[in-house]
């Protein structure tokens, strides 16, 4: 029986568990006529994606909220758009003086 890479990586991941968030799924398949005797174990070792969950998704939620507020400028009413042009004209006239 040899040493595999799991021994090297999981030790360090377990020590840095706050930053790397390792996950483990342990399943057991029981024998046919028994509640206790196990036929097969399976383990899935993984690492939770820290960057997506704790950085990009909150950032995406913030951008969506800001966009919902800004969406109201595009109302579809042409008179509002003429009003915007009028406001910009007044401001530019003030700045040119």
């Amino acid at each position: 029986m040899e040493m595999t890479a799991t021994g090297f990586s999981r030790s360090l991941l377990r020590m840095l568990k706050v930053l790397a968030l390792p996950t483990k799924i342990l399943r057991q398949e029981l024998k046919d006529n028994s509640k206790y005797a196990v036929k097969k174990y399976s383990v899935v070792l993984g690492v939770k994606d820290v960057y997506t969950t704790y950085f990009y998704q909150p950032l995406g939620v913030v951008f969506n909220k800001v966009s919902e507020y800004v969406k109201h400028i595009q109302s579809g009413n042409v008179n509002v758009y003429v009003f915007y042009i009028f406001i910009v004209l007044i401001v530019l006239l003030f700045l040119a003086v």
Binding site: M1, E2, M3, G7, F8, S11, L12, M15
Partner: peptide
């Protein structure tokens, strides 16, 4: 430590690398 395929050598190597990294 890992070269001969000995499990004890492998475990020593993995522990040593973890401690050395930190």
């Amino acid at each position: 430590g890992m070269d001969t395929g000995n499990a004890f050598g492998g475990s020593g190597s993995s522990r040593e690398m973890t401690v050395a990294a930190l």
